[in-house]
Nucleic acid binder design. Structure first.
Length: 279
DNA sequence: AACGCGCCCTGTCCGC
DNA sequence: TGCGGACAGGGCGCGT
């Protein structure tokens, strides 16, 4: 569930709480959230005694930079949460998969109802490789209209599916893909390589404005997402089309938002503002 | 080799 | 009230 804005919200909350603290111990309750090649004992042995030097975000991933150098990456999947608390706080969470004990007596808890999340442990070198496989950060200067247009021309996939591929643009999920396509007036089923230069520029701007606004609102909560302190995100009321089937088009064009299915996942569209044949 | 699909797992909601 | 089916912010591995 968490997309870029939700991961960013988690990172901002975590940074001030865990930076500078050492991990004293690790308790693995559900080993299936560990990457398949990550042995639980190795994770515990490697993390004991390392200090958190910084907390960053890459795509939808929370990245803990450790000292001595190592990288702990958490992909939150659909229902992952990271919370700093004590034993009492742990009682509020029903699905803690991994607990990291910190040297100040607090605990960093990874809770994940569906356990689709994944925890990876990297050396600085393997992290560099892993990161290189992720696409361009949509809020970075490198994400230019020209670059987006050029990338889309190499694929015939529906543009909504195309946007979900983390190897191209990193951090976009189903909510913000749909929101940005609405802002850009592009139908989500359009082949990526049918997107024109002007449309690519609108899509790029739409993605950036939606992501920035969602970060400012501390993310979108549909049901499970919570920030570090347990607060829901504030962006849900501002969603234009996602989850709004049957409601009037937010652009007041007189049309009605429809739910369609593309690649086994919901897409939301105003058929009048986002013509199928468009371009 | 790009792309579509099924699947991983738990919870909630809706219709019968 | 109970039960089955649909659906959920993701991503991997498979077959074509």
């Amino acid at each position: 569930m968490p997309e870029l804005p939700e991961a960013e919200t988690i990172v901002r909350g975590l940074r001030g709480r865990v930076t500078g603290h050492a991990i004293t111990d690790v308790h693995i309750i559900h080993a299936d959230v560990l990457a398949p090649d990550l042995d639980p004992d190795r994770l515990v042995r490697t993390l004991r005694g390392r200090r958190v030097a910084d907390v960053r975000r890459r795509a939808k991933n929370v990245v803990l930079l450790l000292e001595p150098p190592a990288v702990l990456m958490v992909n939150l999947g659909m229902t992952g949460r990271l919370v700093v608390g004590d034993a009492e706080r742990a009682g509020e969470l029903g699905h803690v998969a991994v607990r990291f004990d910190l040297d100040d007596g607090q605990e960093l808890l990874y809770d994940d109802i569906r356990r689709f999340g994944r925890i990876e442990l990297h050396s600085p070198e393997s992290w560099r490789e892993r990161e290189a496989g992720l696409g361009v950060e949509p809020l970075s200067d490198a994400f230019t209209p020209e670059r987006l247009h050029r990338m889309t021309q190499a694929s015939r996939s529906p543009i909504r599916n195309w946007l979900l591929d983390q190897r191209r643009v990193a951090g976009i999920g189903n909510i913000y893909a749909n929101e940005a396509l609405f802002l850009a007036g592009i139908h989500p089923a359009r082949p990526a390589n049918s997107i024109g230069r002007e449309e690519a520029a609108r899509l790029r701007d739409g993605l950036r404005s939606v992501l920035r606004d969602a970060i400012d609102a501390r993310g979108t909560t549909l049901r499970d997402f919570r920030d570090m302190s347990g607060e829901a995100g504030g962006y849900e009321p501002r969603l234009r089309v996602y989850g709004r089937e049957g409601e009037p088009c937010p652009a007041d064009c007189g049309g009605t938002v429809q739910r369609i299915v593309i690649g086994n996942r919901s897409a939301f569209v105003c058929p009048d503002c986002q013509p199928r044949g468009g371009g």
